[in-house]
């Protein structure tokens, strides 16, 4: 089944140039039924990536631009009085969509942020006591600016935990930059993208990913890693059980993308940083790059023989 995904990845790489690893991670995130947080400076192609994924997978796409004055009702919808019927009627907000791109999520106030983040966790929305299920699949790609920028509300740890991956795009290579400047890719290509998988295909793939084998021996390795995060003096708290589950789920998707039906330690290592770095909180005395610390941790834990 994974062969069907190869052209998908190729297409995406045509739109987002030189970022094949990030593209693969994004797809893995979708396959593992997780949500994706892209953290980078404005103008690095975050939105383009989100739109391209929506198009290629043929998902119903909504974009929410978060601003400092956005309200929860702007996201999940509200009951509005219908003159003709003479009663209140629920008008679904943009959240009722298969793929949501929450742009610059940390520019909104915590109240508005939590409206989306609760929907992500519960897969449903409750308005005035009435519960509305969200469509399936439900995939959120949120982007955020680095927190040191002016006018940002950093996402609390509890909400960061709801994203399966946090990835950074980074600047493109010089060669890709040249192609980009020549105008031969990017948003122009976006419009030419066609859906390459049906919704049923995607759901079936997601089910298959869940069936990928994570052997006892692999779990030993993951347990060692989790233990290491809890014992490391660099972090305030270790990885939560939810973090551990995320690790396994993501590794299964990654193994699937590699064409395997079993997870190897290398899969864990590939997805470890995007899956873990944003869930760990620095201890007071540590300063520096969480990505660096996590990758150091990865080197300190040996793979059981």
């Amino acid at each position: 089944m994974h062969q069907a995904l190869t052209p998908v990845l190729n297409q995406l790489n045509k739109v987002v140039l030189g970022k094949s690893h990030q593209v693969k991670l994004s797809v893995a995130c979708l396959l593992a039924e997780g949500h994706l947080l892209i953290e980078d400076l404005p103008g690095m192609g975050k939105t383009t990536l989100g739109q391209a994924i929506a198009k290629v997978f043929g998902l119903e796409f909504q974009r929410i631009q978060f601003t400092s004055d956005i309200l929860p009702a702007d996201i999940i919808g509200a009951n509005i009085f219908d003159k003709n019927d003479g009663q209140f009627k629920f008008h679904p907000g943009p959240v009722f969509s298969q793929l949501i791109l929450g742009d610059e999520i940390n520019r909104a106030t915590p109240k508005a942020q939590s409206a989306l983040l609760e929907a992500m966790e519960e897969q449903q929305v409750t308005v005035e006591g009435e519960t509305f299920a969200l469509p399936q699949p439900f995939f959120v790609i949120a982007t955020q600016n680095p927190s040191h920028q002016i006018g940002t509300y950093p996402l609390p740890e509890s909400q960061l935990d709801r994203f399966l991956f946090r990835i950074q795009l980074g600047y493109p290579d010089a060669s890709f930059e040249r192609v980009l400047l020549q105008g031969k890719s990017g948003r122009q290509n976006l419009n030419t993208l066609e859906p390459m998988l049906s919704l049923e295909d995607l759901i079936r793939i997601q089910q298959e990913v869940a069936k990928v084998t994570a052997s006892e021996h692999l779990l030993n390795y993951v347990i060692h890693l989790i233990k290491a995060t809890r014992q490391s003096p660099d972090f305030e708290h270790g990885l939560s059980p939810r973090g551990g589950l995320a690790l396994i789920g993501a590794a299964k998707a990654w193994a699937f993308l590699d064409g395997r039906d079993y997870v190897l330690p290398e899969d864990i290592q590939q997805i470890f940083i995007p899956a873990v770095a944003h869930r760990l909180e620095f201890s007071q005395k540590t300063s520096g790059d969480s990505v660096k610390l996590v990758s150091e941790l990865l080197e300190q834990v040996s793979v059981p023989s």
Binding site: L264, P265, E266, Q269, L298, E299, Q300, V301, S302, V303, P304, S305
Partner: peptide, 28 residues
């Protein structure tokens, strides 16, 4: 036994001047 033999295999590789870190899995 599997662990023992895998360690043996790695030791044999090390003898051939292949440097293997402990945090590498078999695929690496």
């Amino acid at each position: 036994p599997i662990e023992k033999y895998y360690e043996l295999l790695k030791a044999k590789l090390m003898k051939q001047e292949v440097i293997i870190s402990s945090h590498w899995g078999p695929k690496a």
